[in-house]
Write a protein that binds this DNA or RNA. Structure first.
Lengths: 184, 184
DNA sequence: AAGATACGTCAATATGGCTGACATAAATTT
DNA sequence: AAATTTATGTCAGCCATATTGACGTATCTT
């Protein structure tokens, strides 16, 4: 699982932008509470799957790949790269392992034979379902105190947290094809 | 909604006989939607800070450390290790850099002189505030359509997603000291 | 035939985790 | 006082996952 965290960068001492004093930092209107709740919630959420994965010798990268391939059968390699936002070199390593160990299989596209369409095997599906089960248990516990409208509120919040301006194929599916596509 | 037009043609390939089926995986009761919404929401949420920090030459690890030190001044090194759930060796690298570059400073504990209490400098606080500002903007956009009760529902959901059975110091603070501490 | 596209791969590198071992200072226990 | 435990730092090395750039090959498009 991916990251538990907040930000990223490279190294540059004595940075040109050491100017932290831009328009004057906001102090009172920041949503510290939700920021931290998101951090801890996600940390524990992904933590569920992490333990399980260790037994299989897999990491978060493997989980992500298997998850989306299972959920969206016939996903192309390029689609997966969009969703995961990694490079094909990084994906390649993980994907090869999953193919070799029989969790995923490829089929040459029938329309376009250059494409390798990805499918989860029964073995892969079983593992993904197991991991999703752990996470579902946590979610069920978390929504136990909410009425149906409350659960819908949570969904609406999460959907609204997602960037909609450049959706990949999976997001288009999730948002029912209504996602605006800026460049088109 | 699971399998839309992801592939040009999706005939299920003959899956190998790799049957892992144990107790029979759950298929219909899994919260796929919320699992995926959490993935995308968190991906974009942390993405906000990622870009910003490149100019400063920092990574996610730096952000995490600065964030919690800023929010909880006087945090001990051991506390930070609990919160971040990393080893002191990993923390050491990042922390040293932040100390050297003047984003954080240490003070020897007055009660226990072995402790190094951590504080953010003005420089550190400003950077953390800047990053929190970006994330706050996203959160504000996400809750724009919710009434106050809806926002409270979101908070309740996130709180309930967090493990309470072995809280670190920061979590105890967040949960108002009411968190049960199993081992003590 | 030429070019673009989808994918694979090689090589080199960076970040951020990890373990184990060991050192030091200060607090606590005996 | 001596021994032990605690809080922290650090060295050395390993692993997983990410990066960029370059190149190869099959295939589709023009």
């Amino acid at each position: 699982m991916a990251d538990i965290n907040f930000s990223t960068a490279a190294a540059q001492p004595d940075s040109p932008g050491t100017d932290v004093s831009g328009p004057g930092p906001r102090t009172g209107d920041l949503r510290w509470d939700i920021i931290e709740l998101l951090f801890f919630a996600y940390r524990d959420f992904v933590g569920d799957a992490d333990q399980e994965l260790e037994a299989f010798g897999f990491g978060r990268a493997h989980h992500r790949v298997m998850h989306f391939v299972t959920r969206y059968p016939g996903l192309k390699v390029a689609d997966l790269l969009d969703v995961l936002r990694i490079t094909k070199q990084s994906l390649g390593r993980v994907l090869k392992q999953l193919l070799d160990e029989g969790y995923i299989l490829q089929k040459t596209g029938s329309n376009d034979r250059r494409q390798r369409l990805l499918y989860a095997t029964a073995k892969g599906e079983a593992l993904v379902a197991k991991l999703a089960g752990l996470q579902t248990d946590r979610i069920n516990r978390a929504v136990a105190g909410l009425d149906p409208a409350g659960v819908e509120t949570v969904r609406a919040f999460l959907r609204a947290m997602i960037d909609r301006d450049d959706p990949d194929k999976v997001l288009e599916t999730i948002f029912g094809g209504a996602a605006k596509k800026t460049r088109e």
